[in-house]
């Protein structure tokens, strides 16, 4: 199952590139949401591969916190654009 990390890394590069080349702030936010979710899924996969539940708990927390921070930031940005 170790081969799965390579494709995951390549897929992670797609939103990173998108966030760099697109000037629209909402496109960047979408890329941030994508990266945030993908990295936490990678943390979960690593935790399963290593059978390390401490990393698994961190992966679950990062998965939830990443979306919460996205919501907070989106609210502030929305007020700026009004």
């Amino acid at each position: 199952m170790n081969w799965i990390l390579g494709p995951m890394l390549l897929i992670l590069l797609i939103p990173i590139y998108e966030s760099f080349q697109d000037e629209d702030i909402w496109q960047k936010m979408l890329a941030f949401a994508s990266v945030s979710t993908k990295t936490s899924i990678m943390i979960l996969v690593i935790s399963v591969l290593r059978d390390d539940w401490m990393i698994g708990v961190v992966g679950v927390l990062v998965l939830s916190v990443g979306n919460a921070s996205l919501m907070l930031l989106a609210q502030v940005l929305k007020r700026v654009n009004e």
Binding site: S19, F32, V35, S69
Partner: peptide, 9 residues
């Protein structure tokens, strides 16, 4: 926003 991406990575 890019700082958020940096934090996730």
């Amino acid at each position: 926003v890019v700082r958020g991406i940096l934090g996730a990575i």
